[in-house]
Write a protein that binds this DNA or RNA. Structure first.
Lengths: 289, 289
DNA sequence: CAAAGCTGTATTATCCATCATACAGGTTCC
DNA sequence: GGAACCTGTATGATGGATAATACAGCTTTG
């Protein structure tokens, strides 16, 4: 029974570096601190740093040059999806990228107290539970667990769920959806989600919990979504709305769509496109987050 | 050179269980599966499960009874803060909870390329960089790194920053803020953030990156915030706005405050409730999901 | 060219998280 | 009361991750 204990420190350093790279903090072409420097910074041996870099290299995020250093390599390989706060990513499909859905599980049963309460169900009332994974360009990026009251769930089949958005099916059943609440949070990947999302257990995930209500106030859908943060993030534009006395911000509804250049960026002002200077960033990486 | 390697599997199980507890999936009073069951479920030895439970117990999240089982204990100790999407948490302060700010670092220098670009700075232009930790009821919940163009930063002092909201200071300098973009994501805690937030390295964190612009389009503030997911989460209400053909949702601006009916009183039987010192702080807030 | 830095590679030793197993003692329930 | 759970506790063995160290070959720089 090999125990297959995974690395700890090495993996940690790998994740931290990876994070800074995909976040754009370390732009492509940047030279990382040397292995001895990283080792000192994280208080580990060079061997361990080496392992972390091995992972990054295997993933194509960095490129090592013997005698020279380790360089960030082609961040473009990782292009996160950007969704606005209402969680619409249709414009991404417009961009030529296709999303697929894989239905992992489908069935009926009595939900947990928490789900039952949030949907406003009576004790013992049954729900349909489904687990889906959404892929973009063949790569998984979200793990969706949905609970729907049984009387709604019975109006569509398993096959239909695999082919149509759930909300569409719910509305087709005659239910009107009018209001929803959602909360965004973060977690670690558990075994199932990690497998489905092609991640390692313990990776960070973005969480979205949404409950959709019909006008009467009954809950019609409980969605629990887990997103890979390197492939998905929420984005929103805000405008100042309060009177000058108070600082209040409201979401800009018709937000500009061109904002999908990947990476964090502004793209609002004309003067962006500052300089793609050939990253002459030789040694400056010392600065921290 | 003691290496002090931390647990891996044990910690993982601890985090997973902890997550389900604070998320309300395992309400207070629930009996956890037995140690042998958990061991089998996670494919580890009972010793390892034991370690995970030790951590939970030390944190006061579960209580063990020899011969009987392990029970979830007083989730109310963990009360997450809820912020709406414009990241205003003033209404929380109204409810009697106080936030404090600790200024960890303050200085001027040349920012990273990423920051410079997002603020629309010319190469070499300097910024003020500050790192703050925000506490609620004495407990840290957010780690804020802000970058402000030097010409704005010079209008206030280090002491003022520690005492006033940054945006207030920026506006006091004569700058008008009008637009902002923000992105929400997830990461793992690095060494500094972990220390500041009283977490272990590798814990999941909620991320908010916000850039505030003045009307001319210049960036005036770059905020990178890390939040403890167990103490903070984003919440928003959505209303259906599209015509019935399209499913489109928009944030409900004046969202009803009393809306959510707290789930703290979900626990069915109250076999638990061991009288310990009442945590002084009113526990009215609550509401998660 | 030579010094200084870097990555690549190897070896040895240590540590500790985990496993496997066994038994003691408490609780629950029939 | 006793079977069947449970938690508490102790044991030794093991293997993978990490540390410490040394040296090679390449690259950059002055």
């Amino acid at each position: 029974m090999k125990s297959a204990v995974e690395p700890l420190k090495a993996r940690r350093i790998y994740l931290l570096l990876r994070d800074r790279i995909v976040a754009g903090e370390l732009p492509a072409g940047t030279r990382l601190p040397g292995e001895p420097a990283l080792a000192a910074e994280h208080a580990v041996s060079r061997v361990t740093v080496r392992r972390a870099l091995d992972l990054l290299e295997k993933e194509g995020l960095v490129q090592r040059k013997a005698g020279s250093g380790t360089f960030v390599h082609d961040t473009r390989a990782v292009r996160p999806i950007v969704a606005d706060l209402s969680n619409v990513l249709s414009h991404l499909i417009d961009m030529g990228r296709s999303t697929d859905v894989k239905l992992l599980s489908f069935g009926y049963g009595v939900p947990s107290d928490q789900i039952a309460e949030s949907l406003g169900l009576k004790p013992g009332e049954r729900v349909q539970r489904s687990v889906r994974v959404r892929l973009i360009d063949g790569e998984p990026f979200s793990y969706l667990t949905t609970h729907v009251p049984e009387w709604i769930g019975l109006t569509y089949s398993e096959a239909e769920l695999a082919a149509h958005p759930l909300l569409e099916l719910i509305e087709r059943s005659g239910v009107t959806t009018e209001r929803a609440t959602q909360a965004i949070n973060a977690t670690l990947a558990g075994p199932e989600a990690a497998t489905a999302l092609d991640l390692e257990i313990g990776s960070p995930l973005l969480t979205l919990t949404r409950i959709v209500y019909e006008p009467s106030g009954r809950g019609v859908e409980h969605l629990h979504a887990l997103y890979r943060p390197d492939r998905y993030s929420f984005h929103m534009d805000l405008v100042r709305t309060g009177n000058d006395g108070e600082r209040r911000w409201s979401p800009a509804l018709g937000w500009p769509r061109g904002t999908d250049k990947t990476k964090a960026e502004k793209s609002k002002p004309d003067k962006n496109k500052l300089g793609e200077k050939p990253t002459r960033t030789a040694r400056a990486i010392k600065q921290r987050s």
